[in-house]
């Protein structure tokens, strides 16, 4: 059982949610290429745990017989015809690049091979 923000008690999930540790947050942060101090990780682990607990309230809803959905509005098949339109001028494309060379974006090499 858990208590929602408005004080109701619901029979679901959040109680089963383990609290996020600083290490969990560090892992998620690394995947998003974010860097935090230890204090920030501590603070964020608390905040993220709260957010997850809040989202877990949805688990209380009876979804028996309800189709899963990825979108909230009943709109489907928004498509365009296969007709090319002009692209951006190359100079504009590269104008925001920190570095460019011969029409290419220039980036530090990422090593993935052995």
């Amino acid at each position: 059982m858990m208590e929602t923000r408005d004080g109701r008690s619901v029979a679901a999930g959040a109680g089963e949610l383990p609290r996020l540790t600083a290490a969990d947050v560090a892992k998620v942060a690394a995947q998003a290429r974010l860097r935090f101090t230890d204090e920030e990780l501590e603070q964020l682990s608390g905040q993220l745990s709260d957010i997850l607990r809040m989202a877990a309230e949805l688990k209380a809803v009876d979804t028996e017989g309800v189709e899963p959905t990825a979108h909230g509005i009943p709109v489907y098949n928004v498509m365009r015809d296969d007709i090319p339109v002009p692209s951006m001028p190359q100079a504009d494309v590269l104008s925001g690049a920190p570095e460019a060379k011969d029409g290419y974006f220039k980036v530090p090499r990422i090593l993935e091979e052995a």
Binding site: M79, D81, P84, V85, S87, M88, D102, Y104, F105
Partner: peptide
Amino acid sequence: GCRTTFGADPNSLVCPVCLGLPGSLPVLN
């Protein structure tokens, strides 16, 4: 709507959508 031509000048067939610039939205072909 950028063209798919092979061998064009580098970065000549791009737009805010395929560059992922903020505010751009995809529409399916």
